[in-house]
C-alpha cells in the first residue's frame, strides 16, 4: 500500500469516537414516524450539550423579547425540531475541526465555518427539491471535508506541487490530489465514516462529493452535498488553495428542477443564515 495512505489510515484509528447522539439521531430520523422525545432524552443526559442547546435558544435571534428558556424541552419549542436536531449534530461534530485548515491555506476555524455553511444551505436546497433525509444530508455536509482535517499537515508539504498542477487551469483539485498523493480528501473522510459505522449512502456522498456521479448508493444525497459545497465555495466560504477547480455537473439543474435564479437565491439565503447561526453558536 501507499506508505502515506497507510500512515493516514493509522491516524484515523486515533480520532476520538463520534458522540453516540449523532448515530442515535440518524437512526431515529430514518424511522417513518420519528420520536423527538427519544432524542431529547439523550440530549438531557449530556450536561454540556444541554447547556449549549439552552444557550442557543436564548441567543438574541431566537430569544427576541421572550422569557429565558431553562430546559431542553422548552428549547425545542423555541428552535423547532429541525434546527434543534441540526445544532445538536453540529455541536457534536465541531471537535474534529478545531485546529484544522492551515495546510490548505485557511484561517483557523474557516474549515468548520465552511462545514456549517454547507450544511445550512443544504437544508434550504432540500426544501426546494423536497429531499426527505434532511438530517442525513445535514450530517453528510458537516462531515464532507473531515478528510481534510486528517490531511492538513501532509498537505502543507505538498502545497507547491498541487498549486503547480492547478495553475494549468485544466486539472481539477481531485485529479491533482490523485496524481500527487494517490487519494482524495473525500476518500479519507469516507474511511473515517466507515470506521464510525455510518450508513453506506452517507459514506458514498462524502467519498464522492466532488464527483457525485460516481456515488453508487444514495446518488441523490451525493448531488445535494455536491451542490451545497459548490455554492459555499463560489461564495468564498472556506475557499482554499483548491479554489473552484472542480467540474460542473451540467445535468444538476434538470435533476433538481432548479433554475440559475434558484441557485442565486440560495447565495442570499446563505449569507443571511450563516450570520444568524454564527451568532447563535456564540450564544
Amino acid at each position: 500500500m501507499n506508505p502515506v495512505l497507510e500512515k493516514i489510515l493509522q491516524n484515523i484509528e486515533k480520532v476520538p469516537p463520534l458522540p453516540s447522539i449523532v448515530m442515535k439521531i440518524l437512526s431515529v430520523m430514518r424511522n417513518p414516524e420519528p420520536s423527538i422525545k427519544n432524542i431529547i432524552a439523550v440530549v438531557q443526559l449530556d450536561e454540556v450539550l444541554t447547556f449549549r442547546v439552552i444557550r442557543m435558544a436564548n441567543s438574541a435571534y431566537y430569544k427576541r423579547s421572550g422569557e429565558d428558556v431553562r430546559t431542553v424541552g422548552e428549547a425545542l419549542i423555541r428552535l423547532g425540531n429541525n434546527t434543534l436536531i441540526n445544532m445538536v449534530i453540529a455541536e457534536s461534530c465541531s471537535q474534529y475541526y478545531e485546529s484544522a485548515g492551515t495546510g490548505y491555506d485557511l484561517k483557523r476555524g474557516e474549515l468548520w465555518r465552511h462545514s456549517i455553511a454547507t450544511a445550512l444551505v443544504s437544508q434550504k436546497l432540500a426544501e426546494k427539491t423536497q429531499f426527505e433525509h434532511k438530517e442525513a444530508l445535514f450530517t453528510s455536509c458537516i462531515m464532507h471535508d473531515v478528510g481534510k482535517t486528517l490531511l492538513d499537515s501532509y498537505m502543507s508539504t505538498k502545497r507547491a506541487e498541487i498549486l503547480s498542477k492547478l495553475a494549468l487551469g485544466t486539472v481539477t483539485f481531485t485529479q491533482a490530489e490523485m496524481e500527487i498523493m494517490g487519494f482524495s480528501h473525500g476518500e479519507i473522510g469516507a474511511r473515517l465514516l466507515e470506521r464510525w459505522g455510518f450508513p453506506q449512502d452517507m459514506i458514498s456522498a462524502v467519498r464522492h462529493h466532488h464527483e457525485p456521479e460516481r456515488a453508487l448508493s444514495g446518488k441523490k444525497l451525493a448531488y445535494h452535498v455536491y451542490l451545497s459545497d459548490v455554492i459555499c465555495l463560489m461564495m468564498g466560504i472556506g475557499l482554499d488553495l483548491g479554489g473552484l477547480s472542480y467540474t460542473a455537473q451540467k445535468d444538476i439543474f434538470d435533476m433538481f428542477n432548479l433554475s440559475e435564479a434558484d441557485v442565486q437565491m440560495l447565495f442570499i439565503y446563505l449569507v443571511e443564515e450563516l450570520a444568524k447561526t454564527e451568532e447563535m453558536i456564540r450564544g
Partner: peptide, 14 residues
C-alpha cells in the same frame, strides 16, 4: 469572478 471548471457554462455566476 472565478468559475467552476465547465465548458458548458453551467455555473457561470463568476
Amino acid at each position: 469572478g472565478s468559475n467552476i471548471m465547465d465548458p458548458n457554462g453551467t455555473f457561470s455566476i463568476g
